[in-house]
Amino acid sequence: MAKTLALPKEQLVKHALSQMQNTLADNTWNTRQKLALTCRILFEHGHDSGLAGQITARGPQPGTYYTQQLGLGFDEITAGNLLLVNEDLEVLEGHGMPNPANRFHSWVYRARADVNCIIHTHPTHVAALSMLEVPLQISHMDLCPLYDDCALLEGWPGVPVGNEEGELIAGALGDKRAILLSHHGQLSTGGTVEEACVIAQLIERAAKLQLLAMSAGTIKPIIPELGREAHDWIARPKRHAAAFNYYARQILRQHADCLN
């Protein structure tokens, strides 16, 4: 006989969270491997734009972070060819040079002690939406980890290789997890590589759904308290890790070399 059909939602949520915490397995990849996996995941899910975009994660010492070499596409990144750089973009480990646009990552890391990974890409639907200078509209349950958690930079400051752009982007991001950059692309952050990867995946899907919905009619908003509830329910470390692990299993069937 069923024992839970009369339980209130609050109690069912608490039970489910406990189950997730005790059941969903963590992965054992190191930071370099997670970054390489993230590059391949994003490549396969529409974030590839030639050599545009940077993916970084904090390094072993303050003021350092890992990033990819300029000249390599996301599908060519491995754990072994990543660079370790400092805030001046000087290479501390590895060979080659980082993308000069990595400079604004330093400003975000300085402003946000809670951020350990930054993903900046120019995926098709995000790029298209960015041309309209309109906010990302979260009006579907699956997208709620971004509910009231995605900022908008309305103006385009130009090529982001100067310190001015770093200050502007970090300031516009504020305390949000992500930001839509007008006439540019997106920036997603996370306390973990896994979280940043999942947020980046989500913002491109959100942009695609928004463009589809806008072409059909007027997007109807969801009730704010329900949006916040769904945000807090989905946007949890265990959920992000489980989603990342799923994406990684998919990718490793074709991109097993990225862990080398």
Results as ranks from 00 to 15, higher is better:
92 L>D: 04
176 K>S: 13
138 I>Y: 00
22 N>K: 15
93 E>H: 12
87 E>S: 13
24 L>S: 07
20 M>T: 06
116 N>I: 06
219 I>N: 01
146 L>I: 12
160 P>S: 10
248 A>P: 06
138 I>N: 00
134 V>M: 09
90 E>F: 07
228 R>M: 15
149 D>M: 08
229 E>P: 04
88 D>N: 14
242 A>Q: 14
99 N>Y: 02
35 L>Q: 02
78 T>F: 05
234 I>H: 07
224 P>C: 07
73 G>I: 00
63 G>C: 14
137 Q>A: 13
168 L>A: 15
15 H>Y: 14
73 G>D: 01
99 N>H: 11
119 I>M: 04
58 R>S: 09
119 I>W: 00
125 H>D: 10
166 G>S: 10
125 H>G: 03
94 G>T: 14
102 N>G: 14
233 W>V: 12
252 L>W: 04
142 D>P: 06
8 P>A: 10
140 H>S: 12
153 L>D: 01
112 R>N: 14
41 I>V: 13
199 I>E: 05
129 L>W: 00
63 G>T: 13
46 G>W: 02
77 I>T: 09
241 A>G: 08
186 Q>N: 13
82 L>A: 01
201 Q>Y: 09
162 G>P: 03
103 R>S: 15
193 V>T: 08
77 I>L: 11
78 T>S: 13
243 A>K: 11
189 T>G: 07
120 H>L: 05
229 E>V: 06
140 H>T: 09
77 I>M: 13
240 H>W: 12
30 N>H: 07
212 L>S: 15
118 I>T: 00
89 L>P: 02
13 V>W: 09
131 M>Y: 06
7 L>G: 05
18 S>F: 12
251 I>E: 06
170 A>R: 04
11 Q>I: 06
93 E>M: 09
35 L>Y: 01
248 A>F: 03
115 V>Y: 02
127 A>L: 13
30 N>Q: 08
182 S>Y: 05
192 T>Q: 10
174 G>I: 08
29 W>S: 08
170 A>C: 11
241 A>R: 10
254 Q>A: 07
250 Q>W: 09
93 E>Y: 08
178 A>I: 01
73 G>W: 00
233 W>K: 14
90 E>S: 15
197 C>D: 01
164 E>C: 02
170 A>Q: 09
137 Q>H: 14
42 L>Q: 06
30 N>W: 03
132 L>F: 04
225 E>Q: 09
229 E>S: 13
137 Q>I: 13
156 W>M: 12
